[in-house]
Structure formats: C-alpha cells, structure tokens
Design a protein around this nucleic acid. Structure first.
Length: 117
RNA sequence: GGAGUUGGCCAGAUCGUCGCCGCUGUUAUCGUUUACGCUGACAGGGGAGGAAAGUCCGGGCUUCAACAGGGCAGGGUGCCAGGUAACGCCUGGGUAGCGCGAGCUAACGACAAGUGCAGCAGAGAGGAGACCGCCCGGCAAUUUAUUGUCGGGUAAGGGUGAAAGGGUGCGGUAAGAGCGCACCGGCCAGUUAGUAAUAACUUGGUGCAGGGUAAACUCCACCCGAAGCAAGACCAAAUAGGCUUCCUGAGGUAUGGCCCAUACUGGAAGCGGGUAGGUCGCUUGAGCCUGUGAGUGAUUGCAGGCCUAGACGAAUGACGAUUCAACGACAGAACCCGGCUUAUAGGCCAACUCCAACC
RNA sequence: CGGUAUGUAGCGCAGCUUGGUAGCGCACUGCUCUGGGGGAGCAGGGGUCGAAGGUUCGAAUCCUUUCAUACCGA
C-alpha cells in the first residue's frame, strides 16, 4: 500500500477550489469545517484554507496544515474520489495534536457516509 | 552561603516506522543534433532562527533618470577619536546623572548671529520689578510713641510661579545693595598634559555683563538621485491589432444623375512589440571554522580547512520507545548581507562587586 | 513579500501645522411648548485622545518604540 503524498493529491489553483465551495457536502465541528465534492478522478484530493485572522502566527498555521496533511495521507485509501477543503476556525490553535486528530477522524467518517449515501 | 553586575554559549538528545523538498550518483522508458531533456525507481547526503519577526537604518544587486561635476529645495545625523563596504551601528575616551560597589544611563554642537514661545498666578517673565515689608523727610492727629496721608530711598525678608537676574559670611548704611572685602562659583585669556573632546594650574584679568526652550524656526559641520526581486533579463502559444513585401490590377460598399476621383474592404509570406505560460535572477558570500601575528578594544593581517535550505498554494512533520529537574519559552527562510529594536522557559561557563560566617 | 495611510465621546469627523481651554453633527438624559405622538427650543451628562517611554515647567499635538485596522502592487 502506497502512503505517499504527491502533488496530484492536492488542490492547487483557484479553479480547483471554486467548484468545491459552490456545491459542497459539509461536515462541521466547532473548530473545523470540511467541504467535499465528487471529482472525476480515481483518487481523493485535499486543499486547505487557514485564515491569518483566526491563527495569528505562521508556526500555528503550519502546525494545523501538517496535522491535516498527515491524517489525509494515512486515510487516503479509505476515502472515495472526492475533493475536500479543510477550513480552520478560531480556537483551534488552543487544541493539542491528539484532540485535532480525534476531530478529524470523526469528520472523515461523516464525509464518507454522506458522499456514499 | 546569599544578593547582584558584565560578557559569552546552548535552544532537548538518541533509536525505529511512514511521509515532504532540493542536490549527487546509478539505472529504466520515451524524444531527438551519441549528449541533453522529460518521467519513474534505487542508493547516498543535506534541509529554518537567535531573533528567521518588526521593517527602524546602512549596503550589495537591478531598472529608470541624469551623466561622472557644482548649486538650490527637501530629508537625515550631531561630545571626541578610532573601526567598518557603509550606517542613525560598534569600540575606546571625555563630560553629566544614578548606584555602598562591580557597573549602568544620556538626540551630549550652537540661545555670547538673528527671530519666536512661556496659559493661569504674580508688583514684575528678561538689560525686569515697589503688592506687603524696611528706612528717611514733610504735614495732620493724638494716649509721645504710634497711626494716617503725601513725596522719596531700598531687591535683605514675605508672597506668586516650573522658572524672579551668582552663593555664604563680614564690613558698611537711615534702611539696603558686589557698594567694599574674604572664600566658593562663573566668564575671558594664558600655560601645561592630551591626536582631540577635555582636564589641571600657588597664572593673569573681570564684580558678574551672559535665565529657560533648538525632539521651536534657525545657524554651523557632515551625509543623501528615485524605486524596488511583484526589481529586472530571456524564450514564447491562441486571439485581436501594427508595419513591410508579393498576389489580384479585379470585385464590393459609401459620396454622386454619370465618369473621373477619394475613403474603406481580400489572400499569402515575413518582421517587430507583447499576453497566458515557462526559464533565469536563486544562493560562494564584505561567508564560516581552527591556529597564529598586530591592537586596551571594536577590528584586522597571514596560513590551513569547509560548502552550510533554495521552495513557488510554498518543504523539517506525525506516531511509538528510551532518557533529562523540566512534554521543552519566543517563534517558521522567500533576493542576499551588516546593524538596531521588540518577544523569549530553562540551563551552562568566565570575570568582578557587596553582605554574612569561618580560617 | 514589498509599499502606503489611519487610530480622539455609542457612531461619523475637527483640533496636531504654530505644545497650555479637547470641540462639531447625529444619538443619550431632563425640562418646556402639545390632550398625546412627531417636531422644535432650552439645559445637561459622557472621552485612559490605540499602548509604553522620552523631550518640556506643561504633550491629543514634538521624538522613539510598540499594537491594531484599512488600502495598493501578481
């Protein structure tokens, strides 16, 4: 099983992001929002929106981004072919790595259920 | 042992698994000018900071404008000397202030070139000023020593203010006053020491003329072209438009009654500008480490060694284990350097100071 | 990443050049006019001048540092 995280698994340009925002299946928690949409490829892709307004320092933004990426890397084969956008909200900077991992775990499952059903 | 000052250093470590971004080597597929390019695999090795931050200064580099220069405007700096590519930085020294001390702090040129400013209070705010007071004289009253009034003298005292035109003492005087004298201070000049700032003086002169404010205008000395890697350089689709040449020398449309005439319109090739996109700029540099010489020091000479991130939606992480007194503060490179400023848990080293105790 | 501007009463703005009293409009409170409302008039309250230092006798104003917010450049 290949757990690599290459460029094809990422949303890069505004053209990649816009369709997800327009027509999305949401999964919400107080600290994170996930938006998903089926794509035409045979693998999932992920993009992130971490506003400077909510997480002030670059170190904090890097931490959120790295945790989300790591989770996605491990979960990619459980996920269907969808484009996901992860949006960070205020207050997430106060959570520990384990807490964020738990929240993400829940939200992945929600998304899989809603996209299949 | 306690309290403290200064300078410097570190910024968790080790192992395993799964991943990310460059580099080097080997190799496979494909494309072609047999050497490159694209994609993939394997191996090796590298991968955030002392502030990467704020963007407050100084440079390199690039383009533009000038042309190697001089001046004005505008801006900056401001004790002296040195260091440096340069600086508003650093080092050493001076002066002033703070601390018992080691030490620390300071935009620290000129108000004796000119102009301005100082509300309220106060008699007076700058070649000042009689409100109270003090003293003298005239007149009047009377309790014969004071009161009232008028005219003078006076800056010792009170009072106002942030600030009132040297200080203390003695003499002097009607009362006072640098009015005179002594000491202290100031100013001008001289001598000596020092590169200088400045300091010292049993030196000479001067009764003191010259209050504060320049982070007020200003004066003096020195410095500064502007914008910034989204700078800029190169390659270069599609579409529209531009220029040149050729083809046709004809047709169509408009003006007009018609001809002539004028304007617009076709196809092909080439050229230049240039958008999307791509490549370069992009990391070897006023570089780092070690030794040694010069210097109080900042710094620098010489010798040897080293290569230490270069992304482009943007790379260092996650999980587990062991360990440490501590689950580890502040915090993430984006063209690159030198500083400053701000944030910062804990620990280590060196030198020095004060207090207590012991010898 | 680079480059600019702005922070003053609940809101929107003056005052900063040339330092001594913080002012204007809307809003708020009370009173009057009206039977009541609206409206008008009169009176009044409310501001750490974004924060911290410095210069000055005295700082919203001058200087330095710092924190926010907004805008511009692909």
């Amino acid at each position: 099983m290949n757990y690599s995280f290459s460029r094809e698994l990422r949303l890069l340009t505004p053209e990649d992001f816009q369709p997800v925002f327009k027509n999305a299946v949401p999964a919400v928690s107080p600290h994170l929002t996930l938006l998903a949409r089926k794509n035409t490829l045979d693998h999932p892709r992920i993009g992130m929106a971490i506003p400077k307004k909510h997480i002030k320092h670059a170190v904090g933004r890097n931490r959120i981004r790295r945790i989300v990426r790591e989770q996605f890397r491990h979960q990619q084969h459980q996920l269907p072919a969808i484009d996901i956008v992860v949006i960070a909200k205020a207050g997430i900077a106060d959570l520990s790595n384990q807490e964020i991992n738990k929240i993400l775990d829940k939200l992945w499952r929600k998304l899989v259920q809603r996209c299949n059903g």
